[in-house]
């Protein structure tokens, strides 16, 4: 009997290493995130100029672009962890990939909701088939599909494998989608960066740029914090499941 239990222990490696890390990290992340977000809010509303033609609504721009950058980063992280999973087959990689995709999806949704608000005030229409916005829409569909694969029934390693494959395919698609849509429709979006500092040419003032960069970093650190928490939560769930199964088996024998 004791032999038995030992063997079971050997085959059910509870992933201790993952959350045995310092519990300080999430707190530090949370601190940084809060500070950055507060700074970003201050810079956005107090420091940066009010844009000439659009007025206050333009403030949404910082959040819009920040969310887009964060979503894109999140999907890139999913892509990297998908490759890592296929090579190493460690559950932790799959957890990171899946949590990151989920957060990315949330940020994509934010981009898609703030986009129309921007569009309404800038071009007086709720939706424009503008390359970046359309690419984001397609991204949203791709990662919704990714979530559908996760909803599949079956053992976790099958789902993890298929999700990883789709995570790779989906992300490879992104630049091509963007390129295609850009060719297809290039009427609307202001080319924010690039030549022309003059406000009218769609350029960006220095103080605006600072606000934008801080906003991006604030959202990125929020993403990191969420990722850390999400992965911890998933690990906890996995662990509970393992204990449950172990308990059931002990009762059986």
């Amino acid at each position: 009997m004791s032999m038995n239990l030992e063997r079971e222990k050997a085959t059910l490696p509870l992933s201790e290493s993952a959350d045995a890390k310092s519990p300080i990290l999430p707190k530090i992340l949370l601190g940084i995130t809060i500070v950055l977000i507060l700074t970003a809010i201050y810079l956005t509303f107090m420091y940066a100029d009010i844009e000439k033609t659009m007025g206050v609504v333009q403030k949404i721009f910082y959040f819009h672009v920040g969310s887009a950058a964060t979503a894109f980063t999140a999907f890139f992280v999913t892509f990297i962890f998908s490759i890592l999973y296929l090579v190493k087959r460690k559950r932790i990689f799959d957890t990171y990939a899946s949590v990151s995709a989920e957060i990315g999806l949330i940020f994509t949704t934010l981009v898609l909701t703030t986009g129309p608000i921007w569009a309404k005030s800038a071009w007086n229409t709720w939706w424009v088939w503008e390359p970046r916005l359309t690419t984001t829409l397609i991204l949203w569909f791709i990662y919704m599909a990714y979530m559908m694969i996760r909803q599949m029934d079956g053992v976790w390693d099958k789902k993890a494998r298929l999700c990883a494959v789709f995570g790779i395919i989906g992300f490879t698609d992104v630049p091509i989608v963007f390129f295609a849509i850009r060719w297809w429709q290039t009427k609307f979006h202001p080319i924010v960066f690039g030549n022309g500092v003059s406000q009218k040419g769609g350029g960006i003032a220095d103080n605006m740029l600072v606000a934008l960069i801080v906003s991006i970093f604030a959202l990125l650190s929020l993403y990191t914090y969420l990722l850390n928490r999400g992965v911890e939560f998933e690990n906890m769930k996995i662990k509970v499941d393992q204990y449950k199964e172990k308990l059931r088996e002990d009762l059986e024998n």
Partner: peptide
């Protein structure tokens, strides 16, 4: 040889 489906051990050594 062991085989594990989710947390269930089907083959145990």
């Amino acid at each position: 040889l062991t085989k594990q489906a989710d947390n269930k051990l089907i083959l145990r050594g």
